[in-house]
Design a protein around this nucleic acid. Structure first.
Length: 517
RNA sequence: GGGGGCAUAGCUCAGUCGGUAGAGCAACUCCCUUUUAAGGAGUAGGUCGAAGGUUCGAGCCCUUCUGCCCUCACCA
């Protein structure tokens, strides 16, 4: 499927040039947002507004015109009536009908109008009024070619459905399917609200390195890259954690960062190799404080769309209730509740795990087995927002233990719609303990463990880090919740797909096998 | 990586029992000065994802490959 320019469109392009029209205008003075224009007209004609579909009541003769309006946008529909044409313009704020009559715009302009295709960008000037059928319309006195489209637009009724094409040609998806653009506006709104909330709490937004000499702060396989001048191997970060905590040492007591993490792992409806994480750290707070903060922050983000007691539809037709307060349950209690087994009764847990088909053979770590059971039996029920807290320390290598119980980490995870949304804990600030844990990680030779100990980070802790709690929130997943998305790809503009050699560009013909492993 | 599914015109989709390719929209020509999934008359458009195989004959059956979707595994 090579991209070929439609010959008819190409001909029209040349025809425009011959008529002295620049098909790709350099500048277009101050078009108004369509939504503004529609709003102004509605304001001036309040009684006409509810007359939907009622031709008699519309009383078009009575309406008050909005005069001298200019709009611009992409032509999404075109109805040719011989000596007059209706077309629909779409801009970022909405769609609006434009009516162009030969009598109004003149013979010469009307001839040029015949060279308009669906998908072109056009500007139009005129007065706004209602048509006989009651549609608010610009009765154009003139129009301007702004940009010629050489590719056809998708089918007007069904839009662009093919999932692969939607992701590969997101630019088409965005203008063809209104709800797509809307989802990304929602995403932007969420991020704006998160920022505002944290700013109001006295947090400072920072930017820390995306390229790390040591891939630390989480357990994940990193992407590897190389800096030529320094001749240095670097990793795209898997988490900003260790840098943000360095800032706590430096006295920045409340910091956050919203930015990309990169993890060289599987792709799924909930995973993209690069994804957006909010990490926030707060000195003199513990994990309980962060539960409060997270709850308020997410409900605050939901407020503009869903109000203060948010009820959000989900893809499977249920309703998610985000009204505060959210359920808080101990890991151990949820385990017991779902399985009838005490998590600390090792034999019983292993027997139970075996009974539900979990691998318990060989030298598998007990806590890994127990966590498999948890994921299998508890997580599928974590639909309503739930803070799961007090995790076993063995599966929480970065958190501080409870003072009264060294086997339990001061850590929680927030689940919403069965997705892990937040991971948070009271941060370890004991440099000696930290160094030991790093050593053990490195010695484990685990593929997801860093290759070397981050001594600079240990040294930072030796300078003294205040007690603090930190959280990581998956921003894409939160956007999924708010936009009722089934896949993370629906909230990421350009999700990672396999590269396709074909397409518009002639390939350089590189059968490249020259990549090093 | 394992399992399941999908791939037909620019777009959205049909395609019967294996008998040689269809519709709507878009496009093109013409008519139409208040339509709105405008309408009317006509025209053109296909290496059925790719490569092999079975068969007298393959969009359809088989094999391999490519891409995407779902799912499992790991992660947030």
């Amino acid at each position: 499927m090579t991209s070929s320019i439609h010959p008819d469109r190409r001909k029209k392009l040349d025809a425009l040039r011959e008529l002295g029209v620049n098909p790709y205008a350099n500048r277009y003075e101050a078009p108004r947002p369509i939504a503004d224009v529609l709003r102004e007209f509605a304001k001036k004609n309040p009684q006409a507004a509810p007359a939907e579909g009622d031709e008699a009541a519309a009383a078009p003769a009575e309406s008050v015109r909005v005069e001298g309006v200019r709009v611009a946008g992409r032509v999404m529909a075109l109805r040719d009536h011989g000596k007059s044409i209706f077309l629909e313009l779409k801009d970022r704020t909405g769609r609006m009908q434009v009516y162009l009559r030969k009598n109004d715009i003149g013979d010469e302009a009307f001839e040029k109008l015949g060279l308009v295709d669906l998908g072109d960008f056009l500007g139009a000037d005129g007065d706004v009024d209602k048509t006989r059928k009651g549609e608010i319309t610009i009765f154009a006195t003139g129009f301007t070619f702004l940009s010629k489209a050489l590719q056809p637009i998708p089918e007007k009724w069904h839009g662009l459905r093919d999932v692969e094409t939607r992701y590969r040609k997101r630019y088409v998806d965005l203008f063809a399917n209104d709800e797509v653009a809307e989802a990304f506006r929602v995403r932007a709104m969420i991020i704006r609200r998160l920022r505002r909330f944290l700013d109001d709490q006295g947090f400072t937004e920072v930017e820390t390195p995306m390229m790390h000499p040591i891939a630390g702060g989480a357990a994940a396989r990193p992407f590897v890259t190389h800096h030529n001048t320094l001749d240095m191997q670097l990793y795209l970060r898997i988490a900003p954690e260790l840098y943000l905590k360095r800032l706590l040492v430096g006295g920045m007591e409340r910091v956050y960062e919203i930015n990309r993490n990169f993890r060289n792992e599987g792709i799924s409806t909930r995973h993209n190799p690069e994804y957006t994480m909010l990490e926030a750290y707060c000195a003199y707070a513990d994990y309980n404080d962060l539960m409060d903060l997270v709850e308020r922050m997410i409900v605050d983000a939901a407020e503009p769309m869903f109000g203060e007691e948010p009820k959000i539809p989900t893809p499977d037709g249920r309703t998610l209730d985000l009204s505060r307060p959210w359920r808080r349950a101990k890991y151990r209690d949820l385990f017991q509740e779902a399985t009838g087994v005490d998590m600390n009764d090792r034999d019983a847990v292993v027997a139970y795990a075996k009974s539900i088909g979990i691998d318990v053979e060989g030298d598998r770590d007990f806590h890994a087995i127990a966590n498999d059971v948890f994921e299998e039996k508890v997580e599928p029920d974590l639909f309503e927002p739930t803070f799961v807290y007090d995790y076993p320390v063995e599966i929480s290598p970065l958190s501080k233990c409870r003072e009264d119980d060294p086997s339990t980490a001061e850590r929680f995870e927030l689940f919403i719609r069965n997705m892990e949304m937040v991971n948070a804990f009271s941060e370890l600030n004991d440099p000696i303990d930290q160094e030991e844990r790093f050593r053990r990680q490195v010695d484990s030779k685990d593929e997801e463990a860093p290759a070397e100990v981050d001594y600079d980070y240990v040294t930072a802790l030796e300078h003294g880090m205040p007690p603090a709690a930190g959280l990581g929130l998956g921003v894409d997943r939160l956007a999924m919740i708010f936009t009722n998305a089934q896949s993370i790809r629906d909230v990421i503009l350009f999700p990672l797909l396999r590269h396709q050699a074909s397409g518009g560009e002639p390939d350089a013909g590189s059968e490249s096998d020259a990549n090093e492993e």
